[in-house]
Design a protein around this nucleic acid. Structure first.
Lengths: 154, 154
DNA sequence: TTGAAATGGTACAATTTCGGTCCTATTATT
DNA sequence: AATAATAGGACCGAAATTGTACCATTTCAA
């Protein structure tokens, strides 16, 4: 399985596309451009709109437009909006009936929490702007270059 | 969903427990100590053994023992052994029929790759030793402290 | 020598999550 | 009036995760 769900991928695509099309676009247009299921994409756009990322306009020439600045949207924000808040383990979910019977003497709980925070820090730091233009942002410069030489995604 | 599967959690528990019990232990013992399904845990221990982390000994007083040093076991290693190699997106899986039809013009591929590498770096850097004793290792010191003050896992 | 306790291997079943569909209502444009 | 779009749901099938079962083999001890 992948760390990012398809919902998350598509949300990023939507936000990206709308950033490049300031006049807005429709679910039909985006689904066709990226060969994605239209109803599925529509669901995601509804969510993004509901969470304040997009403005919506009904009717024949309706559609969505991006209303939040990419610099102010973190990966963590988006995941939260999609109801996919990051958790390293079940244990790190705060609410929920904690079924783990070893909490009081769990030998890895503290150590795992450090890892949790390190990954969460990345997700909070990386913004949509950085995803869209990785070279311009200082934070990701090294990694953007590393990508090219390593070619971890081909 | 959690980033780490239950398999991964249990594997860490096993490795941790065996580190604290250098003379070895059995699946029965560990499953009972942590209130975990014995057959399920047994399956995981088989895998860990098969991948060279543990030595096994059959028979009445048999069991498993840790044979690799915690400092030489990264989270990434364990995930790979469990057949759960980290991928940020489907796109970052190299083999597999790449079904994404937007590869050539995907606006987020490069940016995502940077994030992929940053998380992968953490998973490769963090060792079992660090999980077991987060304060002693320099790398995680800051995060170990952050944990206490933030209390992200309660 | 027999039985119990352990691993080895593998197949199978239950459950949950994910990815996606469908339907109806509402709004806006032409 | 027709069409194209969003709004808000319920719903479903497939796949992954999680857990079980079974049987064989090894080892030790009574």
């Amino acid at each position: 399985m992948s760390f990012f769900s398809r919902k998350m991928d598509y949300a990023l695509l939507v936000l990206s596309h709308l950033h490049n099309n300031p006049d807005g676009s429709s679910a039909r247009e985006i689904s066709s451009k990226f060969s994605i299921s239209r109803p599925f994409l529509a669901n995601i756009m509804k969510i993004l709109c509901h969470n304040g990322y997009l403005s919506s306009h009904r009717g024949v020439h309706g559609g969505y437009a991006l209303i939040r600045k990419p610099e102010n949207i973190s990966l963590s924000d988006i995941m939260d909006s999609l109801d996919e808040t990051f958790h390293l383990t079940d244990c790190s979910k705060e609410s929920e009936k904690q079924t783990c019977k070893a909490r009081t003497f769990c030998p890895i709980r503290t150590g795992m929490s450090g890892v949790h925070d390190r990954i969460r820090t990345i997700l909070k730091d990386v913004t949509l702007a950085e995803i869209l233009d990785p070279v311009k942002t200082g934070n990701s410069l090294q990694f953007g270059l590393e990508l090219v030489s390593h070619g971890s995604i081909k």
